[in-house]
């Protein structure tokens, strides 16, 4: 039987509690991790002509930076802990993309950090954990 997949909505930086918790759970339940880093992006924002011209180059730089600074170190941490892990970086709305990834990967669970949930904007507009609580297709663990 193939291993269960846990999707981790990983922001990087101060999210080590989330990552360590997900690794620990995956190790105990012999699951694999799929670490997803989403860069907020809307196709309906406005750009200057210069930004339009530079967008393709910037996107490549952002993807490289995210891979090297966020995804690769996270995979390395998981692997070092004996957990099999994959990763990807995507552009768009965090909540929608994490839910879509969980569906596409037939994941068993989603892990998301609570960081940012206390800010005023999060209270007004909703945060990633709150959004996932509403639309996640699988059980979701909010890591404090």
């Amino acid at each position: 039987m193939s291993k269960e997949i846990f999707v981790v909505a990983y922001e990087g930086g101060d999210d080590s509690t989330l990552l360590n918790y997900a690794i620990e759970r995956a190790r105990r339940e012999d699951a694999t991790l799929h670490i997803v880093h989403v860069l907020e992006w809307s196709p309906y924002t406005f750009l200057t002509p210069q930004e339009v011209e530079e967008r393709h180059t910037r996107r490549k730089q952002e993807m490289t930076r995210a891979k090297e600074a966020i995804i690769d170190p996270a995979i390395a941490t998981a692997t070092a802990a004996g957990v099999e892990a994959t990763g990807e970086m995507r552009y768009g709305q965090v909540v929608e993309l994490i839910a879509a990834t969980a569906t596409a990967k037939a994941a068993a669970m989603i892990f998301v950090g609570r960081s940012g949930s206390n800010s005023i904007s999060a209270r007004v507009f909703g945060s990633v954990p709150l959004g996932l609580a509403q639309i996640a297709p699988v059980p979701t663990v909010i890591v404090p």
Partner: peptide, 11 residues
């Protein structure tokens, strides 16, 4: 996603 969209080029 992340590239310039048609909407952005138009705007």
């Amino acid at each position: 996603a992340g590239e310039v969209s048609h909407f952005q080029a138009l705007a």
